[in-house]
Computed example of a mutant assay.
Amino acid sequence: MPPALNDSALSYLLAASGIELTDAQKADLTSIHDLLAEMKARVRQPRGRMAEPAHTFGFTAEDLG
Protein backbone atom coordinates (compact mmCIF):
# COMPACT_ATOMS: atom_id res chain seq x y z
CA MET A 1 0.00 0.00 0.00
CA PRO A 2 1.43 3.39 -0.93
CA PRO A 3 1.99 5.90 1.86
CA ALA A 4 -0.84 8.24 2.80
CA LEU A 5 -0.99 11.52 0.97
CA ASN A 6 -0.22 14.24 3.50
CA ASP A 7 -0.54 17.99 2.97
CA SER A 8 3.17 18.60 2.34
CA ALA A 9 3.39 15.79 -0.22
CA LEU A 10 0.28 17.04 -2.00
CA SER A 11 1.61 20.60 -2.04
CA TYR A 12 4.90 19.39 -3.51
CA LEU A 13 3.21 17.32 -6.22
CA LEU A 14 0.88 20.15 -7.18
CA ALA A 15 3.69 22.69 -7.30
CA ALA A 16 5.87 20.36 -9.39
CA SER A 17 3.04 19.83 -11.87
CA GLY A 18 1.98 23.48 -11.99
CA ILE A 19 -1.58 22.71 -10.88
CA GLU A 20 -3.35 25.18 -8.62
CA LEU A 21 -6.26 23.88 -6.55
CA THR A 22 -8.55 25.44 -3.99
CA ASP A 23 -8.49 24.17 -0.41
CA ALA A 24 -11.77 22.32 -1.05
CA GLN A 25 -10.31 20.60 -4.13
CA LYS A 26 -7.21 19.60 -2.17
CA ALA A 27 -9.39 18.13 0.58
CA ASP A 28 -11.39 16.14 -1.99
CA LEU A 29 -8.23 14.81 -3.62
CA THR A 30 -6.74 13.82 -0.28
CA SER A 31 -9.95 12.05 0.76
CA ILE A 32 -10.00 9.80 -2.34
CA HIS A 33 -6.26 9.10 -2.54
CA ASP A 34 -6.51 5.65 -0.93
CA LEU A 35 -9.42 4.67 -3.19
CA LEU A 36 -7.44 5.71 -6.27
CA ALA A 37 -4.47 3.62 -5.11
CA GLU A 38 -6.75 0.57 -4.74
CA MET A 39 -8.21 1.17 -8.22
CA LYS A 40 -4.74 1.45 -9.78
CA ALA A 41 -3.76 -1.87 -8.21
CA ARG A 42 -6.83 -3.57 -9.70
CA VAL A 43 -6.37 -2.05 -13.16
CA ARG A 44 -2.73 -3.10 -13.41
CA GLN A 45 -3.54 -6.82 -13.36
CA PRO A 46 -3.42 -9.16 -16.37
CA ARG A 47 -6.87 -9.61 -17.86
CA GLY A 48 -8.35 -11.58 -20.69
CA ARG A 49 -10.07 -10.12 -23.72
CA MET A 50 -13.47 -10.33 -22.04
CA ALA A 51 -12.39 -7.56 -19.67
CA GLU A 52 -13.20 -5.19 -22.55
CA PRO A 53 -16.54 -6.48 -23.80
CA ALA A 54 -17.06 -3.46 -26.06
CA HIS A 55 -14.10 -4.66 -28.12
CA THR A 56 -15.33 -8.20 -28.67
CA PHE A 57 -18.08 -9.46 -30.93
CA GLY A 58 -19.89 -12.77 -30.80
CA PHE A 59 -21.48 -13.21 -34.22
CA THR A 60 -23.23 -16.45 -35.03
CA ALA A 61 -23.57 -17.87 -38.54
CA GLU A 62 -27.19 -16.61 -38.56
CA ASP A 63 -26.03 -13.07 -37.80
CA LEU A 64 -23.66 -13.10 -40.75
CA GLY A 65 -26.01 -14.90 -43.18
Rank of each mutant, 00 (worst) to 15 (best):
M1D: 11
M1C: 13
M1V: 13
M1E: 10
M1Q: 12
P2R: 07
P2E: 02
P3N: 03
P3C: 10
A4I: 01
A4E: 12
L5P: 14
N6P: 13
N6D: 10
N6S: 08
D7Y: 14
S8L: 06
S8F: 10
S8N: 04
L10R: 15
L10N: 10
S11G: 14
S11P: 09
Y12V: 12
Y12R: 11
L13R: 07
L13E: 15
L13S: 08
L14C: 12
L14R: 09
L14F: 14
L14K: 02
A15L: 15
A15T: 12
A15P: 02
A16T: 14
S17H: 09
G18I: 08
G18H: 08
G18E: 15
I19Y: 10
I19A: 13
I19P: 06
E20D: 15
E20G: 02
E20Q: 10
L21S: 11
L21C: 03
D23R: 03
D23I: 01
D23K: 10
A24R: 06
K26S: 13
K26C: 15
A27G: 11
A27S: 04
D28T: 05
D28Q: 13
T30K: 06
S31T: 10
H33S: 03
D34S: 04
L35M: 04
L36S: 00
L36F: 00
L36Y: 00
A37M: 06
A37R: 00
E38T: 06
M39L: 05
M39P: 01
K40D: 06
K40M: 05
A41Q: 04
R42D: 05
V43R: 00
V43Q: 00
V43Y: 11
R44E: 08
P46K: 09
P46Y: 11
R47V: 03
G48C: 02
G48V: 15
G48A: 07
G48Y: 07
R49H: 07
M50S: 13
A51C: 05
A51V: 09
A51H: 01
E52Q: 02
P53A: 09
P53N: 01
P53V: 01
P53E: 15
T56S: 01
G58L: 07
G58Y: 10
G58C: 14
G58K: 04
G58H: 02
G58F: 13
G58Q: 12
F59K: 14
T60I: 10
T60K: 08
T60A: 08
A61I: 09
A61Y: 11
E62W: 00
E62V: 05
E62P: 11
D63V: 09
L64F: 05
G65A: 14
G65V: 06
G65S: 07
